[in-house]
Design a protein around this nucleic acid. Structure first.
Lengths: 214, 214, 214, 214
DNA sequence: TATGAATGAGTGTTCATTCAT
DNA sequence: GATGAATGAACACTCATTCAT
């Protein structure tokens, strides 16, 4: 068991941790379940990565970091301000998709007031925000975008996408709950929602689209 | 202890429960803490409302129901389609405000896939959605609104507002985390955000505001 | 609610108590269940008969006393020493039958070493034992019976009958548990068992039946 | 802690469990007391053997199984049909003796209708019954015994012995309770009772001892 | 006399963490 | 590095009993 193995053991544990924490949250997750999912002994988990809180902090920093990496990488290969913005939104949409672990972890973290969120994880979030900021700034300098608040835009993008994506099981139950006056015809695909949000955000940012946003 | 007292004891427990569940989530909440907050013996809590899960289900149904009541009431006293929509958004904004218990409870519930959400609570959510649906439909029939998907609009409103409002402690920490390339000048008030969202939604729904949304 | 009613309330509670204690034992019985069975408020139960232990002691004294009364009454109306002995056994058999509450209560009490058995209940048991003693003595004086130990005879009678009668559900399960080498053909009725025990005891007590017992 | 230790820990817990369950019954036993008696932490008990019910089931299966083993072993080393029967009774007498844990556990189980008795424990009981059956059958084929019902004989043996043996503390109290007409001279030793039962059973089974039993 | 409400002291069970090997 | 065993500190829940009316 050389350095390589240590890495692979630790990686396996972190992956298991992200899976279980995503499903159950920090309080609901069981160290036993994480160890079992990673197919390692519980004591090994402690030996490799420390206690539950340390494990959680490493995991969340990694999960957010991976998303930041991906968003930065994907927007870099695209030209044009609106195109960059669209790519930004779509990459985030992918990372908040149903199978993703980011969205539920992040939502619980927000609900908790970031109680378990380490500074390192915040920094990773900062990388994404500052990417958006620079996209918006450059679009502004190019005369293509109006001056908008990047934070508010960020919240709108992440909030809507995370909300819609993780919402799915609840929407499914609502469909079965035939309620008077509730029209269930309008249930739509994730792709449509993403398109909708892309349109909405780009529209609210474009210079000549009217004065609907200040 | 008369009939009044029974009600008041149960009410007090439910109020304490919503406070603690909002702060800590279902798994993180301690029955002891709820009882202590309500200043009743733990056994009284069980006597009055049943076990932790039953208590949670009653509480969440009540919290969502209260919001539904309020939104319905507030939109009823307003005339005009856009005005109704604006009132709808603002009332929801109030109920997802920082002091509110609805937002964190709802966000964790969504992250959990609605695992602990009883049908009764879903029905209360349905009332809000069906109100929005009828506002949009009537605006549409009056020729004022375009035909839009009510669910997607609902998600956009609730998602953004809940996200932004509960976000506050994390944003505060980010402010202190002076990161390279991150501009902290743009932090803004909740009211501004609400206005922004109102503008955005109404714009995306109005008939003659361009074709930026399908 | 006069004295009559008090009696009837108390009677109902004692009856419910004997039912529940017979089913669940002292530790397994719940005061709530007794009150519910008696259709009275739990506090009424305490008001009328005292706490769980007092209730149990009253109940067991009554249950044993009723059996003693019945055995004494039934043997009194029969003539002949063997006939009295037979009547004694058969009356006890009736009181240890499946529906009876005496047998399970008594068996648990014995298993407990009589921990919860009050002196008054013991005295009721003494009445039965001393009846058997006098039957045996008179048969002895009449030259019909040999001198036998009354206590041992009593144990034999009560032990076998109680054991066989309360055994039934377990025997039923064994019938379904088809085990190699176990012959289930021989399952027989309670009446036959009672007859068998009557024969056995009377034979072991009769003077001219050989020397098989000392 | 090697494999040996694991076994010894579990053994110690099972032994403590049989002691406490014998004294207090299933409902009356406290998991804390079992753990304390076994000198292990309560969590260790759960780690090794599971919850209270699982522990009880393992314990009772073991206790009955040990008696079955012993009875089978002891009757095997004896020749002659009556001698085997006598040995059978005496071995059971030893296992239902005052210090034994089998008798009170079994009596409560019977009083409970076998509610907590697992099939495996029933199978162990079946082994004893089927041994008696084969002793009786072989004695019958040899022309030494009459055809008798093995089950009824089994009940008679176990019932009387268990009853008499566990009875002791109650008999002791009765001795002190000087009641009119109750003769306390006849209290006798366990050995005498065993002899009495041996005589009685063998007499009732022997071919040419008269027709007192069918 | 009767009762709905309240409660202190348990009671079984879980869980994160550590220890010995 | 890895692991089965062990454990202290909670934790949800129960139950006999009492109180206020």
């Amino acid at each position: 068991m050389t350095r390589d193995n240590r890495n692979s053991t630790a990686k396996g544990i972190l992956d298991a941790a992200s899976k279980v924490f995503a499903e159950k949250g920090f309080e609901g997750a069981r160290v036993d379940e994480i160890a079992a999912t990673a197919r390692v002994n519980k004591a090994t988990l402690y030996y490799q990565l420390g206690d539950k809180r340390a494990l959680y902090e490493l995991m969340i920093t990694q999960v957010i970091g991976q998303m930041a990496d991906e968003v930065i990488k994907q927007t870099a290969v695209v030209n044009g301000h609106s195109e960059k913005l669209q790519q930004f939104i779509e990459t985030i949409a992918q990372h908040t998709g149903i199978a993703s672990r980011f969205a539920p972890i992040m939502m619980r973290e927000i609900a908790d007031g970031g109680r378990n969120l380490p500074d390192q994880a915040l920094q990773q979030m900062g990388r994404v925000l500052s990417l958006l900021q620079s996209i918006l700034e450059q679009g502004c300098q190019a005369g293509e975008f109006r001056q908008v608040n990047p934070l508010i835009t960020h919240m709108l993008i992440i909030g809507s996408l995370m909300f819609y994506n993780t919402n799915e099981p609840i929407r499914a139950r609502m469909t079965h709950l035939k309620q008077e006056g509730l029209d269930n015809r309008h249930f739509i695909s994730t792709d449509e929602v993403v398109d909708h949000i892309v349109d909405l955000v780009i529209a609210s940012v474009r210079k000549n689209d009217g004065e609907q946003t200040k």
